[in-house]
Amino acid sequence: MIFIINHKIHFRPADGTIWNNEVESEKSHLTLTRASSRLLTFLIENQGKILTRNDILKAVWGKYGQHSSNNTLNQYISLLRRMLSNFGLGVQVIKTIPKTGFLLSTDIHIVANKEFANSGVRADAPLICRNCKKLGLLLLLIVLFMLFAGVWQSRTGICNFSTGLQPGASWHQNVQTPAELVLLV
Rank of each mutant, 00 (worst) to 15 (best):
N6A: 03
N54T: 12
I50M: 11
G48T: 03
Q75K: 12
H172E: 15
S162T: 15
N118E: 14
G164W: 06
C129N: 05
S78C: 02
Q75M: 10
A14E: 15
M146N: 11
L141N: 11
K49I: 02
L165A: 09
I9V: 14
W19A: 02
I97E: 14
N131S: 13
T33N: 05
L139W: 04
R122G: 05
Y64V: 03
V91C: 00
L73D: 07
H109R: 09
V182P: 00
R122M: 06
H7A: 11
R34D: 15
F148A: 14
V185C: 04
Y64Q: 06
F116I: 06
E115I: 01
E26F: 12
F102C: 04
I9T: 02
W152I: 06
S85H: 14
H109Y: 14
A117R: 08
G101M: 10
L89R: 01
E24Y: 11
G157T: 06
L40S: 06
L184T: 03
R81F: 08
L127K: 12
A123F: 14
H10A: 06
V93W: 01
I18R: 01
Y64G: 01
N131I: 13
Q92T: 10
K114E: 15
L138Q: 12
L183F: 07
L165G: 01
W19E: 02
F161K: 08
S69G: 03
N46H: 15
V93Y: 02
L79Q: 14
G88S: 08
G101F: 11
T156E: 08
L32Q: 01
P178E: 13
N113Y: 09
I5A: 02
L141K: 12
N70L: 05
L89Q: 09
F102Y: 15
L84W: 07
V111M: 13
N54P: 00
K95C: 04
N74P: 00
G101K: 07
